[in-house]
């Protein structure tokens, strides 16, 4: 054995290192397990599909705000559309203003089609999917976004 050879790992230090390694591996696994628990596997919460009533209830050119459902339902000549009133910035509820919508929390402003015209909001207000129930009532699915200018014809 020349002096340049690295010293051989003794059985004792190998076993020590191995046991230390398994200790840290176990610790890491435990930590991962600990962080898995608070990460919910199923998100609790009500189904966000709202029955808003028969289409005849809303006249053409009307807009109806549903405060509890956090959305505004519009009807124009082409059909129905629904815009979410939850601000895309930090989740406050926007209110109707002169030129569209305004957020009370940090001053984001949107036009009446939900596009951002000022303030910190990163995205336009989402357009929500409109459909009909078996009995003919309008349904808005607040979890399903649709592209802007999508209309639902009755």
């Amino acid at each position: 054995m020349s002096r340049l050879d690295p010293p051989r790992l003794s059985r004792r230090s190998f076993l020590s290192l191995a046991s230390l390694g398994s200790f840290f591996a176990a610790l890491g696994t435990a930590a991962a397990g600990i962080f898995r628990l608070p990460n919910p596997a199923v998100l609790p919460g009500p189904v966000r599909r709202f029955k808003l009533g028969p289409p005849e209830q809303f006249s053409a050119g009307s807009e109806t705000a549903f405060a509890e459902q956090n959305l505004v339902l519009f009807r124009d000549d082409e059909g129905f559309y629904a815009i979410s009133s939850t601000c895309t910035h930090l989740g406050c509820t926007v209110a109707r203003s002169k030129d569209g919508f305004a957020c009370p929390c940090h001053g984001s402003r949107f036009d009446s089609k939900g596009s951002v015209i000022g303030g910190p909001a990163p995205r336009p207000l989402p357009w929500l999917e409109v459909s009909r129930a078996a009995n003919g009532d309008l349904i808005v699915s607040a979890d399903n976004e649709v592209p802007e200018d999508t209309r639902y014809r009755v």
Binding site: N70, H89, L90, P104, C105, G107, P120
Partner: peptide, 26 residues
């Protein structure tokens, strides 16, 4: 009340500096 936000909805004073910054970009 989840339907009506406080207006203005202000955080406690020591977070208000951050809230001002947040009003530029979250």
């Amino acid at each position: 009340n989840a339907a009506i936000p406080e207006n203005p909805a202000k955080a406690p004073w020591y977070f208000l500096g951050i809230q001002e910054l947040v009003s530029y970009s979250a």
